[in-house]
Design a protein around this nucleic acid. Structure first.
Lengths: 188, 188
DNA sequence: TGCATTATTTGACATAGGTCAAAGGAAACC
DNA sequence: GGTTTCCTTTGACCTATGTCAAATAATGCA
């Protein structure tokens, strides 16, 4: 998914604006398993994924990783709270496949927000959209059984199952790898 | 908490703008336990709470209510996904005390977003702030024990315990009333 | 003030899903 | 192509929290 196309579909930017906006992003190749942000760092960039899958994850006691979110092609990815509040990130960000992303720094983004009303609108729309998705996950986690959460995941990230290790998905769903494996088998 | 003061503290609106913006809101008195939105309705208004506490809640099988969020003085309240996407709300919204709120319709709000860049910015900021808070709750629900979630709640809504029934808080925290009662007692 | 209603606590018991440990599979690397 | 490493499945057992039911306590209202 192309950044220009993506932006145009959300807000009808005049092409001059859009050109200017795009020029503030940098295209980057990112290697599989390389961290974009570590816990404790302030997340300095917002990423748009052109190709690849990423995830955010917490590191719990005993080194256990808990996936917080998956990010696929055509989505923005960041440690949002850290990026916007300029606080240390509570979790890690990494790509799970070799990827191509577009990145922009906070300063540049702020500049674009200030320069273009349309851009501010884009920010608002993306933010409420993400809010909706997080609320959905919260309600899945809060009152669904392990099996129902698995079904929720299939709607939110239809093809993720074939792209990332089972353990990542299990922790994203708030269950152990063993439980997810049992659910997949069909019984349990 | 006064709406004008609140808005001014987030974005430095010129007073003319602010005056115009405020004029689009309507002041309403709302009675305790009266629903602002029912499940299945499209939520037509965004509310700002000047006085009172509200909550959003799901109605599960067997008529069991599950609180999704609390809203206190000085916060905006709505069925956000429904309000912004104009979809039927998945949950109810009600005030838990006699309250005073300021309300605005989607059309008027859109008009203000379009008219004032500052307003759009306010929308973006409030939306990312809410996103942060929901992410925090999600992480509490997803990997904390019942007791830890209780502690999380005390930071998010310090004085809520004295204002709303225990059952509402328990379901907000994803546990039963009995469990919360046992936690409060200190053992368990 | 006293009754009716609603909210909270307590106890006994049940269970979904966790933990630990080990065995298969698959994939990556030389 | 064989070996090392990582990923997934399976089994046996355990525990935090849920369910159900009943007893108190608190609150609202006549």
């Amino acid at each position: 998914m192309n950044l220009t196309t993506y932006l145009k579909n959300i807000v009808p930017f005049p092409s001059k604006e859009l050109e200017d906006i795009i020029s503030y992003f940098e295209r980057e190749s990112v290697q599989k398993n390389s961290p974009l942000v570590r816990k404790g760092q302030v997340c300095s960039k917002l990423y748009f994924i052109e190709k690849g899958v990423g995830r955010s994850y917490y590191l719990k006691e005993a080194g256990k990783e808990v996936t917080q979110w998956f990010f696929v092609e055509g989505q923005f990815m960041s440690s949002i709270e850290s990026f916007f509040q300029q606080d240390p990130s509570l979790y890690y960000l990494e790509m799970l496949e070799d990827a191509i992303v577009y990145s922009i720094s906070r300063e540049k983004l702020d500049l674009l927000f200030a320069r273009y009303h349309n851009m501010e609108k884009l920010g608002r729309l993306l933010s409420t959209e993400m809010l909706t998705r997080v609320v959905n996950k919260l309600s899945a986690i809060q009152f669904q059984t392990a099996r129902e959460r698995h079904d929720y995941m299939l709607t939110e990230f239809p093809d993720i199952a074939n792209r990332v290790p089972l353990g990542h998905i299990a922790s994203y769903l708030g269950m152990t790898q063993e439980t997810l494996s049992r659910i997949r088998r069909g019984n349990s």
